[in-house]
């Protein structure tokens, strides 16, 4: 039996796994750019076959990154409720005015049609691809690399006075404290449970009851976050951090052949997904 209190168990986004794979070794700038390009491709692609190819390729990436696929699949679990809600909304609310759209069911403004069924299936496929890709990105790239890569990619924006460094520092710190707060939350749940607290016992329409049940968690967590934040500011100041002042940079990246290959492959995949006219 697994414990009900292992919060960190199913969070695959943000958990870097140390491996020595080709994916891990990519230059983060190129990895991020490839990621962005693939996302655009997935967003545009609206055929079944294209999305299935995309799904297959994103699963294959787990293999390339030496990360068990099961770990990526478990990352889907927390997203299932969202997928269901969005799916239902699309199923009943999506409308398309085209001659070959068949309407199966209609009630007031609700209708289920062949187009809405298609869009639900496509969205589910897209959603899975996005979760898989983000999981691979964060499992194979340390958050430091992600933010450094992001900082470097965004650095042209500095010319228009966009605070690129502050921006990436905010992201780094936010990500850096995810596991810390997850552990904190886990401890808090355990501690309140041993005082007799129960979470999520009210039925779903008892919103007030369910919300007040969470107070013993939310309030202490908020206090802890505040205290940690204050500490962190002091520690950063003590290490001479002053927002906006000039800094030097420790990590410098040099792209090699693999990085350009990855970028080109990503562009190629987007072409395959978007421009080939698949029959369905």
């Amino acid at each position: 039996m697994s414990s009900p209190f292992e919060l960190t168990r199913n969070i695959t986004i943000g958990q870097y796994l140390v491996r020595n794979s080709i994916i891990h070794k990519l230059d983060p700038r190129f990895k991020l750019a490839s990621f962005a390009i693939l996302l655009v491709g997935i967003a545009i692609c609206d055929s079944y076959i294209g999305n299935l190819i995309g799904l297959f390729l994103s699963i294959y990436l787990f293999h390339l990154a030496s990360i068990p696929v099961s770990y990526g699949v478990s990352g889907l679990k927390p997203a299932i409720p969202f997928m269901i809600i969005i799916g239902l909304m699309q199923l009943f609310l999506y409308k398309e005015m085209s001659p070959d759209n068949v309407i199966y069911w209609q009630l007031g403004f609700l209708e289920v049609s062949s187009a809405s069924i298609k869009i639900v299936i496509i969205s589910v496929l897209r959603f899975m691809q996005i979760i898989f890709l983000s999981s691979i990105l964060t499992l194979s790239t340390s958050t430091t690399e992600i933010t450094r890569g992001l900082e470097r990619l965004l650095s042209p924006l500095q010319k228009v006075k966009f605070p690129v460094h502050a921006f990436s520092l905010i992201i780094t710190i936010a990500i850096r404290f995810v596991p810390t707060f997850a552990m904190e939350m886990e401890k808090m749940m355990k501690a309140q449970a041993s005082r007799g607290a129960e979470f999520g016992t009210g039925a779903w329409w008892q919103i007030i009851k369910r919300t007040t049940e969470m107070f013993p968690l939310i309030i202490p967590l908020f206090n802890v976050a505040l205290a940690r934040g204050e500490d962190l500011i002091l520690a950063m100041e003590a290490r001479c951090y002053t927002p906006g002042s000039s800094r030097t940079v420790y990590t410098q990246y040099k792209a090699n052949g693999n990085d350009y290959v990855a970028l080109l492959v990503s562009v190629g995949i987007v072409f395959v997904l978007v421009f080939i006219p698949y029959p369905w």
């Binding site: 780094t172 962190l232 950063m236």
Partner: peptide, 8 residues
């Protein structure tokens, strides 16, 4: 825990 900024 509260004085480490980076993730490596």
């Amino acid at each position: 825990d509260n004085q480490i900024v980076a993730t490596i």
